[in-house]
Design a protein around this nucleic acid. Structure first.
Length: 802
RNA sequence: GCGGGCAUGGCGGAAUGGCAGACGCACUAGGUUCAGGACCUAGUGAGAGCAAUCUCGUGGAGGUUCAACUCCUCCUGCCCGCACCA
C-alpha cells in the first residue's frame, strides 16, 4: 500500500463514490434524531466561488459529517439565490441574458463545490429563479397583502442614478449605492412597502429564545432602535392643528425655546407667513435637492429658517417660535422636535447660530459653554422645580396627559421595508392594477406570475421597471371585474427569495404548498445556521420577520426559524485588503484544489484562525497543512502492522477525541486542527507504540475534516465499508488519565521545580516529596512556611515569608 | 455620540484562575541532495551565564488572589455596526 499521497488521484474517486451511493441524502421522518444544518446559500456570480465560501462550508460540512456519524439524521442542503442586480448588471454589460448567465454560473459553482467534497444533499437543490420556487415567494407576498402588511405608498426613496433603481435604507452605505458605489439621490415613487415595523417588538423580545452571538443580538436591537418617551402636542396660535413632537427628555419641557420641523413636515406649508415665504420655499427646495448623505456630511453646520409662526408650550404656556431645519429627520418621531438648547448638543449649536434663547432647566452644567445633557435637578420649571429628571419625566408626562396634550409613547428607528425594485431580474409582484378596482391580487390559482423571457431587459431610465415596456405582458384583465387592467411592473428585492428558502429544502418540488406541514414539523427549527455578519440587519432580520408572519397565519410550527446562529469571519487577501478583481489579489479555490487538494484547502481554512475572525490568506500556511497530511499518510502506512498502542498513545487518542467533541461545539475549528497535528507529531516520535486500532480511530476522527484522505487510507487498511459508516467514538475517560503526571512546584506562585509523580498522589505524599527537594530547600531555607496549596493533578504551591 | 468587540514572539495564533507562547509559518545550524526544491535532526520571547540556573515579559496604571493573558476599576490604541433617531 505504500505509494505517495496524491490528492488529485484519490479525491475525484471518492467524490464520485459518495455521490453515487447517495451518502448525504437526508431522510424525511427518520426515527433518528434530526439535525438541520444550514449555510447561507450562495449568489452564483460570474466570479465563481470565493475562498470565503469554502471556509464556512468546510467547517459546517465537518459538523454535518460528524453529526451523521453520531447517529443523527442530518439535513445539509444547498441552493442558489440567483435573482438580483449583479446578474442583471452582468447581463446588460455582456448582452448575455440573465437566465443564461445564471445557468452558466450555477454550473460553475456546482463544479467547484463538488470538487471540495462537501456533503450537501444535492437532491434538494433549489433555485430562487425557478418559477416553481418563486410561485411561493409570490404566494407569501399575497398573504402579506391579504393581511394588510403589504401596501403602496408614494414616498421619497433612495434612488441610485447609475443602477436606476430604488434602494432600501439597508442598501445605502455611506450615502452610496451598496452595489455600484454611486451617490444616492432622492426620488419620489409609488412603492410597495412591507410592514416589518409591526413586528418590531417581537423581533426584539424573541431574541431571548435563541442562541445567537451577543453582537448579532445587539446589532438587531440597535437597528430596531426602540426608545421610550413622550409625544407632546404644541398647539398652534392661529390654527386647529397641533404639532406633535417626540422626546425622551420630557423633563426639559420648560427649557423649550423653539420647535423645529423637518422640511418635509406636512404642516410647513400652512405655517409659512407672507413675509418669510420666499426665503422658506427656497430653503426647502435646496434641502430636498440634498441627498441624505450630504445632509449628514454637513452635520456640524446646522441650518434652518424661521417660519414666522408660533405655537404654545403646553408646560408653561409660553409662545414658542416655529422653525424649519433639515437636521430634523422627517421619518422619525413625526418629523418635529422641541428644541432645548441648554440640554441638547444639536439644539445648542442651532440656537447659537441663530441667536435663540438658551434656558437652563436642569442644574448641574455650565450652559454658557456647552449643553448639559445629563440628568439632574429641575430648575426654572414651575411646580416641577427640585425634582430629579427621572421623576420629572413621569410627573410632567402625567401632567400633560391630564391636559390631553401629551402621552407616553414608543418610537422605533426601524422603518417599513421598501419592497419594490424597478428591475427585470426579480420576482414579479403578483398584483394587477385596475382603474375601477385598484390594486387587485393575482388569484392564487394563477401563480406563478412568470417573468417574461425577453431580449430587452435594460432599465428604462425613467425609473420605471423594464417590464413596463413589455405591453403584451403588462396588459391583462382585472381578476375582479374582467375589465382591462395592467400588471404591476416592479419586481421584488432579492431578499424576497432568501426570506424563506430554508423551508423549500424540506419539500423542494411541492406544487400544492410551499412545504408540507408535516415535513416542516419534523425538520424545523434549524439547529445551526451559519452566515455572514453583514446579513445581520438584512437577510437575518427579514427572514425572522417572515417566519413570524408565517407562524401567525399558521403555516410554520414555531416563532423563530434559527435555533443557533454563528458567523464566520471574512477571508482577506495576503496583503490584508479585501479580495477583489481590481486589486488582482483574489485566490481562486480551484488553484488550491489543483495544487494541494481539497482536503488541504478544507483543513487550511479551518486552521487559519478563530472561525469568527477576519483573517488574511497565507499560501505558506497552506503548505504546512499539506505537510501534515503527508505525515498522516506516511504514519498510517508505517503503523498499520503494529498491534497495540502503549498507554501514552491511547491516552493521547482519547484526549484528541474529547478535544474534538468539545471544540466543535464551541466553534473552535482552528484548535481542532492543531490537536490533530500534535497527535501526529507525538505518534511520529513513538511510531512503534502506535497500534492499528489507534490509527483507525484517528482516521475516523479526521474523516469529517479531511474526508478524502481518511476514506482512502481506511480502504487501504482493508475496510470494505466506507469510513462514514463508522461510528463516532466516545472518549474513554479511564484511558485519558495517565499513570504519572508532572507536578508543578511553585514557591509563592512562581514555578521553581517539577517532579514526575503518580497521578493519584496524595496531598501528604506530594508535600513530603516537595519539601525534600534541593531546589525547594534553596527557596524555603530560613523562611517560615505559611501555607501549602495542593491542586490535584496540577501543582503544589508553597507560600513562605518573603 | 451610542452599541459590540479586540490588544500575547518576526507573523497567524494557543492557554476550565494553576508550567505563557501549544500548533503552523518564517528563521538559524547540521545532515541529505549534482543543483533548486523537498525531507530529516536540533534550536528559536528578551536579557545575563560555559552551564545548572536567574531576572524581565501577554497595550498602560491600579486592585482581588497562595496564584492573573484570564476576574474587577480606570486609561490608551485599534476593529466592526449604527448615527443630526431628539
Amino acid at each position: 500500500m505504500i505509494q505517495e499521497y496524491n490528492p488529485q488521484k484519490i479525491e475525484p474517486k471518492w467524490q464520485k463514490f459518495w455521490e453515487e451511493n447517495g451518502f448525504y441524502k437526508a431522510e424525511d421522518f427518520s426515527k433518528k434524531p434530526k439535525k438541520y444544518i444550514l449555510i447561507e446559500f450562495p449568489y452564483p456570480s460570474g466570479e465563481g466561488l470565493h475562498v470565503g465560501h469554502a471556509r464556512s462550508y468546510s467547517a459546517l460540512d465537518a459538523v454535518s459529517r460528524k453529526k451523521r456519524m453520531e447517529g443523527f439524521n442530518v439535513l445539509f442542503p444547498i441552493g442558489w439565490d440567483a435573482f438580483g442586480l449583479p446578474t442583471e448588471n452582468y447581463a446588460i454589460k455582456t448582452g448575455i441574458h440573465p437566465r443564461i448567465a445564471t445557468e452558466k454560473n450555477v454550473a460553475n459553482y456546482k463544479r467547484q463545490l463538488k470538487s471540495l467534497g462537501l456533503s450537501f444533499d444535492w437532491s434538494r437543490e433549489i433555485n430562487t429563479t425557478d418559477p416553481g420556487y418563486y410561485k411561493w415567494t409570490q404566494w407569501i407576498f399575497l398573504k402579506l397583502f391579504e393581511k394588510g402588511l403589504a401596501y403602496q405608498a408614494e414616498i421619497p426613496i433612495n434612488f441610485c442614478p447609475a443602477c436606476k433603481i430604488g434602494l432600501a435604507n439597508e442598501e445605502v452605505v455611506g450615502g452610496k449605492c451598496e452595489r455600484c458605489g454611486t451617490e444616492v439621490v432622492k426620488k419620489t415613487l409609488k412603492q410597495w412597502m412591507i410592514k416589518i415595523t409591526k413586528y418590531a417588538d417581537r423581533l426584539i423580545d424573541d431574541l431571548k429564545e435563541v442562541d445567537y452571538p451577543e453582537r448579532v443580538k445587539a446589532q438587531q436591537i440597535n437597528w430596531i432602535g426602540k426608545s421610550y418617551g413622550t409625544e407632546i402636542d404644541f398647539e398652534l396660535e392661529n390654527a386647529e392643528e397641533r404639532i406633535k413632537v417626540f422626546t425622551t427628555r420630557t423633563d426639559t419641557l420648560f427649557g423649550v425655546t423653539a420647535v423645529v420641523l423637518a422640511p418635509e413636515h406636512p404642516l410647513v406649508q400652512k405655517l409659512i407667513t407672507k413675509e418669510n415665504e420666499e426665503k422658506i420655499k427656497e430653503y426647502i427646495e435646496s434641502a430636498k435637492k440634498k441627498s441624505d448623505f450630504e445632509r449628514e456630511k454637513l452635520e456640524k453646520e446646522k441650518t434652518g429658517v424661521f417660519t414666522g409662526s408660533y405655537c404654545v408650550n403646553p408646560g408653561n404656556s409660553e409662545k414658542v417660535p416655529i422653525w424649519v431645519g433639515d437636521y430634523v429627520v422627517a421619518t422619525y418621531g413625526g418629523g418635529a422636535v422641541m428644541m432645548v438648547p441648554a440640554h441638547d448638543y444639536r439644539d445648542f449649536d442651532f440656537a447659537k447660530k441663530y441667536g435663540l434663547k438658551i434656558k437652563e432647566v436642569v442644574s448641574g452644567g455650565a450652559i454658557s459653554k456647552e449643553a448639559f445633557v445629563d440628568y439632574g435637578i429641575l430648575i426654572n420649571s414651575g411646580e416641577f422645580d427640585g425634582l430629579k429628571s427621572e421623576e420629572a419625566i413621569e410627573k410632567i408626562t402625567k401632567f400633560l396627559e391630564k391636559k390631553g396634550l401629551g402621552r407616553k409613547t414608543i418610537q422605533y428607528k426601524l422603518r417599513d421595508w421598501i419592497f419594490s425594485r424597478q428591475h427585470y431580474w426579480g420576482e414579479p409582484i403578483p398584483i394587477i392594477h385596475c382603474e375601477k378596482c385598484g390594486a387587485v391580487p393575482v388569484p392564487e390559482k394563477d401563480l406563478p406570475v412568470e417573468l417574461p423571457y425577453v431580449e430587452k431587459y435594460q432599465p428604462t431610465g425613467t425609473g420605471e421597471s423594464p417590464l413596463f415596456a413589455i405591453s403584451e405582458w403588462v396588459n391583462t384583465k382585472c381578476p375582479k371585474c374582467q375589465g382591462s387592467a395592467k400588471r404591476e411592473t416592479d419586481t421584488m428585492p432579492n431578499w424576497a427569495g432568501s426570506n424563506w428558502y430554508y423551508l423549500r429544502y424540506l419539500d423542494p418540488v411541492n406544487d400544492k404548498t410551499l412545504a408540507d406541514a408535516k415535513k416542516m414539523k419534523y425538520w424545523m427549527p434549524i439547529d445551526w445556521y451559519n452566515g455572514g455578519m453583514e446579513h445581520t440587519t438584512l437577510h437575518l432580520l427579514y427572514s425572522r420577520f417572515i417566519y413570524k408572519f408565517l407562524f401567525d397565519i399558521g403555516v410554520v410550527p414555531q416563532k423563530e426559524p434559527y435555533q443557533k446562529r454563528t458567523c464566520h469571519g471574512i477571508i482577506l487577501a495576503a496583503d490584508g485588503r479585501k479580495m477583489s478583481k481590481s486589486f488582482g489579489n483574489v485566490i481562486n479555490p480551484d488553484e488550491i484544489v489543483q495544487k494541494y487538494g481539497a482536503d488541504t484547502l478544507r483543513l487550511y481554512e479551518m486552521f487559519l484562525g478563530p472561525f469568527d475572525q477576519a483573517i488574511a490568506w497565507n499560501e505558506d500556511g497552506v503548505k504546512g497543512v499539506y505537510r501534515f497530511l503527508e505525515k498522516v499518510w506516511n504514519l498510517v502506512s508505517e503503523c498499520s502492522k503494529n498491534k497495540e498502542s502503549n498507554q501514552k498513545i491511547s491516552s493521547a487518542i482519547n484526549k484528541l477525541n474529547k478535544k474534538i467533541d468539545e471544540d466543535l461545539e464551541a466553534i473552535k475549528f482552528n484548535t481542532i486542527i492543531s490537536s490533530f497535528m500534535e497527535f501526529v507529531n507525538l505518534s511520529q516520535d513513538n511510531k512503534k507504540e502506535v497500534g492499528r486500532e489507534t490509527i483507525e480511530k484517528f482516521l475516523i476522527l479526521l474523516s469529517p475534516f479531511a474526508p478524502h484522505i481518511a476514506e482512502e487510507l481506511w480502504s487501504q487498511l482493508g475496510h470494505k465499508k466506507s469510513i462514514f459508516f463508522g461510528k463516532w467514538p466516545k472518549p474513554d475517560s479511564k484511558l485519558i488519565k495517565e499513570k504519572t503526571i508532572t507536578l508543578i512546584i511553585q514557591i509563592n506562585g512562581k514555578v521553581r521545580d517539577k517532579i514526575e509523580v503518580a497521578a493519584d498522589i496524595s496531598e501528604d505524599e506530594a508535600q513530603r516529596l516537595t519539601i525534600s527537594r534541593e531546589n525547594v530547600k534553596k527557596w524555603t531555607q530560613g523562611k517560615e512556611i505559611k501555607k501549602i496549596i495542593f491542586v490535584p493533578n496540577k501543582l503544589i504551591n508553597i507560600v513562605v515569608n518573603s
